[in-house]
Design a protein around this nucleic acid. Structure first.
Lengths: 251, 251
DNA sequence: GCTTATTGAGAACACTGTTCTGAAGACGTG
DNA sequence: CACGTCTTCAGAACAGTGTTCTCAATAAGC
């Protein structure tokens, strides 16, 4: 359907230009793209729970029913928001020598995009990248896994494990962020101190591991924890790759 | 707070017995436990989206406002449902020799409990096991990881990776199940055939890996895929464990 | 300029979580 | 047995939700 996004819908726009000359409020036509744009600004401002069709309509200065001419339902709107996630995603060609870094970089970018909009992980979590525009991404990921030399069965689930970790991690981050918002803790360091204080106050004889590790669970930033989790998964995948014997002698 | 659940609330019940003799409908008193029970039957029947306070009240033959005397909000009700997940969860003592099987078994049980109620994974996903009753579980998990010989920093995130995979996987299963329900595909094999047919119909020149691997992504049951994903993660964790040099000579 | 088809507005429906007001029941005390 | 008290439930109400309906106004084609 939609291909390069903004082009096909706004391309034939020039005809409207002349009606702009009127002193009426110009009435720039409603398109699905503008609706999705507005939905994102509402999402960033109000969060997922505040994202309602009425809010989106209000953001556009339009009646609710007008939205339904371009979008069949709220679910479909969320689907379009989800598709935007992949819009400018890099898809490197498989490079068997550096597959680990390729996968990690893909995951890092994915997390960054998930974190760019508030509660975006919640939307992502509820969808599956099996629409026509999104299939190239899973195809390319599979290509990287297979080129790395993993058995087919492992390559087939590797994407599952990776995307599950990716979305789950970002989702958890979203949740803590929302929790912080409700707690009215201004800074995040402040929030982290609260959490750490809670764990430090636990009886050490009942929760010895929890109290000794609480530092590492929260002191290190989320970035470090994400990177470590990524490494765990990549190591696990690598363990399935048999070293090539047929290669040249050089190790 | 609540300890062995059903005991403390229903223990002092005898006094009601005599009022049973009346021909009035007996009016068994409303408790939080009964509300949570009713919520589960509503969840199983209507799914997460159909789980409303009014439905729960109707299930109990009671007015909505009556619920709010025992439960502060719907969120709190969901929290209590979440806590039930861990009620009869095994917590084995750390056994460094068999930590891999211990972790896998824990995850298997977790998935089984998540799948026991419809859409339960969605509820689980939105909560975090940091309430007093649930902390012993993460404590025990950490104990197993550390006893296995993983570095502290790895042990601290291992639980994250594992639970993220666990909940994410079950969540995805829930989603497919709901999708099947909406598609009115009676059997699940039927649903799987539909999905496989979709992938097999893709142009092989654009999606070579997708079409060749589609069989492995769906033919193998979810159990096999879950087991493999679990193995990937456990292998990754194991890769951080340094072999003990100080041990006895026997390997 | 007129007709036709699209587009947005407004009201409405059936819901949702939550709160408020009363009434009816069970309890402890005379 | 009778009284006041105090918890517990019922019912209505409020503000909000996604979605659909009807109808007026606007733009496009001839």
């Amino acid at each position: 359907m939609s291909r390069s996004r903004r082009d096909d819908q706004t391309m034939p726009a020039p005809p409207w230009e002349r009606s702009r000359k009127r002193d009426a409020p110009a009435r720039v036509p409603l398109t699905r793209e503008r609706i999705v744009d507005a939905a994102f600004t509402v999402l960033d401002r109000e969060g997922y729970d505040g994202l309602s069709m009425r809010q989106v309509a209000a953001e556009l200065g339009v009646a609710v029913s007008a939205l339904y001419a371009h979008v069949a339902s709220k679910d479909e709107l969320l689907e379009h928001m989800y598709s935007r996630l992949f819009d400018d995603q890099e898809l490197p060609d498989p490079d068997p020598e550096h597959w680990q870094e390729q996968i990690k970089e893909y995951a890092r970018q994915g997390r960054a995009r998930l974190l760019r909009h508030r509660d975006m992980a919640r939307i992502s979590m509820a969808h599956v990248p099996f629409t026509p525009e999104l299939l190239p991404h899973v195809e390319r990921l599979l290509a990287i896994f297979r080129a790395a030399g993993m058995p087919d069965r492992v390559a087939a689930t590797a994407g599952d494990v990776l995307s599950t970790f990716l979305e789950g991690f970002a989702f958890e981050e979203s949740m803590w962020e929302e929790r912080r918002r409700n707690t009215k803790a201004g800074n995040w360091d402040e929030m982290r101190d609260t959490i750490k204080g809670y764990f430090d106050a636990l009886p050490p004889e009942r929760f010895p591991n929890l109290v000794t590790l609480s530092g590492m669970m929260f002191d290190d930033g989320n970035d470090a924890r994400f990177e470590l989790g990524l490494d765990i998964i990549v190591r696990g995948l690598a363990s399935y790759i048999e070293p090539k014997d047929a290669g040249p002698a050089s190790g």
